[in-house]
């Protein structure tokens, strides 16, 4: 992330009449508080990275300090123990599928209820976003039964559909709110020019709404990738389970050393960290802050 330099700072904004010494003290106090919180926020990650680089004996001798000789054997072992390539593939397929399906379904509904003005459009919109009141914890077993009844037990589709359904309310809301801000005149003009509705949707609305789609994709990516309960119940310990379930099950095994599980944790959170680095401008601009699950 852009660890912004001090050049970002703007001259202090204390009232003009106040004492310069007091002003300096307040300024340093503020910075001190911010630094302490930053250390608290970063330390667990640093601690885990350091431990993941220690050997088993190196950790036993020195659990809290810096690693004496850096070793990557934990990463090699975690790749085999957790079958990282397989779980990574599963996570990508299910998160990607859920993301795509939920975005497309939301795009369709948002367009239909905001721009087609179909009868009862607002009611449909309300119905979709009202699904937000049903948390996965409440329905987890019947959801699992429903997936089994549909013949989707142990398949990627079962988890993909669940992700899509649980991501749908927020995606629909974000796109509908965005579409509402697009003037109707623009669409009327395209219609007069003879553009069909689907063409308006895909060639006009879709490019315009890239910022909204980017924001909701990041949002959905993070919770789908990080989710534990849905894949844990739907996929269990099968070979189609996700990285998060893999790391949860690995941490429960009795012979797992702390350096080994630390390496597993780093592997599990690395993809999200990469997304954070790549999209930090969009994420931190606050586009997501107003619309979180």
């Amino acid at each position: 992330m852009s660890l912004a330099s001090v050049s970002d700072s703007v001259p202090d904004e204390v009232a003009p009449g106040s004492n310069p010494l007091l002003r300096t003290i307040v300024k340093w106090l503020v910075t001190f508080i911010l630094v302490v919180v930053a250390v608290v926020a970063l330390y667990p990650l640093v601690f885990t990275v350091l431990n993941s680089l220690k050997t088993r004996t190196g950790y036993a001798q020195n659990p809290l300090g810096l690693p004496v000789d850096i070793s990557f054997e934990n990463y090699a072992e975690t790749f085999v123990r957790m079958d990282v390539p397989r779980l990574l593939f599963n996570s990508i397929i299910t998160t990607g599928g859920g993301l795509l399906l939920s975005t497309v379904a939301a795009l369709f509904i948002a367009y239909a209820v905001t721009k087609l003005r179909i009868k009862g459009g607002n009611l449909i919109f309300l119905f979709i976003i009202a699904m937000l009141v049903i948390p996965s914890q409440v329905v987890i077993y019947p959801l699992y039964e429903t997936i089994l009844d549909l013949g989707l037990g142990g398949t990627y589709q079962g988890l993909i559909f669940s992700y899509a359904a649980f991501g749908l309310p927020i995606s629909t809301y974000m796109l509908a709110a965005f579409f509402r801000a697009i003037p109707d005149e623009l669409i009327e003009a395209a219609r007069i020019d003879g553009a069909g509705e689907l063409r308006i949707l895909f060639q006009m609305m879709l490019p315009i709404s890239t910022p909204a789609i980017a924001a909701l994709s990041i949002l959905n990516f993070v919770w789908m990738w990080n989710d534990l309960l849905l894949p844990l119940v739907i996929m269990g310990g099968s070979d189609k389970t996700t990285l998060m379930v893999g790391v949860a099950l690995l941490s429960g095994q009795y012979d797992v050393s702390i350096p080994l599980i630390s390496a597993g944790l780093i592997v599990a959170l690395l993809p999200v960290m990469i997304v954070y680095l790549l999209f930090q401008r969009q994420i931190l601009s606050g586009a997501l802050a107003g619309a979180v699950k």
Binding site: F108, I109, V113, I124, F161, L168
Partner: peptide, 16 residues
């Protein structure tokens, strides 16, 4: 346009 989303919401949230 609304059927896919409604189907998802009904089958995987309301029915459960």
């Amino acid at each position: 346009l609304v059927v896919p989303g409604i189907a998802l919401a009904v089958i995987f949230k309301l029915v459960p």
